[in-house]
Write a protein that binds this DNA or RNA. Sequence first.
DNA 1: TATTGTTATACTCTATAACTATA
DNA 2: TATAGTTATAGAGTATAACAATA
Lengths: 159, 159
Amino acid sequence: MQQGNEAIDSLFDEPQPASLGPLDELTGYHLRRAYAVMSADFAQTFADSAMRQVLVGVLSVISANPGVNQGQVGKMLGIQRTNMVALVNQLVDLGFVTRHQDRTDRRAFSLILTDRGQETLRSTLDRIRQHEQRLLRRLTAREHATLVALLRKIDGESD
Amino acid sequence: MQQGNEAIDSLFDEPQPASLGPLDELTGYHLRRAYAVMSADFAQTFADSAMRQVLVGVLSVISANPGVNQGQVGKMLGIQRTNMVALVNQLVDLGFVTRHQDRTDRRAFSLILTDRGQETLRSTLDRIRQHEQRLLRRLTAREHATLVALLRKIDGESD
DNA sequence: TATTGTTATACTCTATAACTATA
DNA sequence: TATAGTTATAGAGTATAACAATA
């Protein structure tokens, strides 16, 4: 297509510059894309380890609430009891968590971080903060704080 | 059942208020939760139909770029060619999209929305806007716009 | 050689139903 | 009767490898 009227020719190629259409006006789409970008970078950052986003969540909640049982952890993180089983099994197999008989409810297990789990959580959080600094480098500190505040409003913590 | 562990025994003396721990300071966690909330509400909103987030994306891009091929759509939406096949098949089966031989590349298909596809996209967008108004009701118009602008910075459109 | 669409496949994530042992 | 943990399973979503037809 080296000759002729390119303005007319282009009508038969790509009618218009590529556009997302009405999708671009939807907040949910941009939330979805931003989440996908951060998830992909997280997975790449921890590709050499067994760490996943959901495991960090479980470790963090156990760390802050030693002795919690699986159901309570799941409730706080939006994870169903049924799916907590395999997650805790993995953390136990990795040597990060131990299960103990609950003193007051013999149906339940109290979860405790091992020393290795504590150390792994600490170093994992360091790597995550670096990964977040990289991904959020275009945001000022104030924008960063604003973003978190707005995301919290969607999560509905103040209901 | 473990016995005689005073460190664990003491945990039951003063129950602590539930906390997410360091997780609560991670932007990625709040992005993940907000995305989960919006995705769940989207799925519930369209539980009575075949519509899914990804299908809205494909319909929107085809609508804005009549004649695009599958690979181009996938590139714009972050969907692999291999996974585009089933998506377009579904939209064709639903009567929303038709495949046509590309004029200039006989390997490719040009994708076009049917009248029914156009109408479905229009009514779907209406329902999505209602769903978003409901979920973002705690955000002012200005906060809403700020959120989208910040999410766009994560997506990296200005790279 | 590279690219478009395709098939087959596998792995993760999430959701439901049903079971057990306790409460 | 309800709840904590468990098992089995099924459906999405997403990833790679390999192929045929065409560029």
